[in-house]
Simulated scan of single mutants.
Amino acid sequence: MTFSRLDMPCVVGHPGCSAVVALMLLEMHAVGKDVTVMKFTEEQAQTAGENYAVDALHLCQAVPIPSTQ
């Protein structure tokens, strides 16, 4: 497998958004879109991050902690 670094136009000011933008780009690539022309705003990255967090919480099932009394 060959790896190369793409020159991406996606730059966000908040460092925490970089992982979210990476996930967004992976999703775009998975459906066959050309990720070299994708441009995201920081607001879009923050909204996507919130949506990813909500989806992750929905995947977790609550487990009751037994009482120690």
Rank of each mutant, 00 (worst) to 15 (best):
P64R: 11
M1C: 12
F3A: 10
A48S: 14
Y52W: 10
Y52A: 05
K33T: 04
L23I: 08
S4M: 08
V11Q: 11
V35E: 00
T68Y: 13
A56H: 03
V21D: 05
L25Q: 00
A62I: 11
M38C: 10
L59G: 09
Y52T: 00
L6H: 02
P64K: 11
H29Y: 08
V37N: 03
A48V: 04
Q44S: 12
A53I: 04
G49Q: 02
D34L: 04
F3H: 07
K39V: 01
G16L: 12
K33L: 15
M38E: 07
H58R: 14
V35R: 00
A45D: 01
F3M: 09
G49I: 01
A53D: 12
F3T: 05
M28H: 05
V21K: 02
V63F: 10
P64V: 07
S4K: 06
A62S: 08
L23F: 06
A48E: 09
M24I: 10
A45Y: 00
S18Q: 13
D34M: 03
A19W: 01
I65L: 15
C10H: 00
K33Y: 14
L26Y: 01
M38S: 10
P9N: 12
A62P: 03
S4H: 07
H14S: 09
G32C: 05
I65M: 15
L59H: 10
T47Q: 14
A22Y: 03
V11Y: 13
T41G: 11
H14L: 14
A45L: 06
G32D: 04
V37H: 03
H29V: 00
C17H: 15
G49F: 05
Y52E: 06
H29A: 14
T2Y: 13
K33P: 02
V31T: 09
H14C: 07
V35M: 01
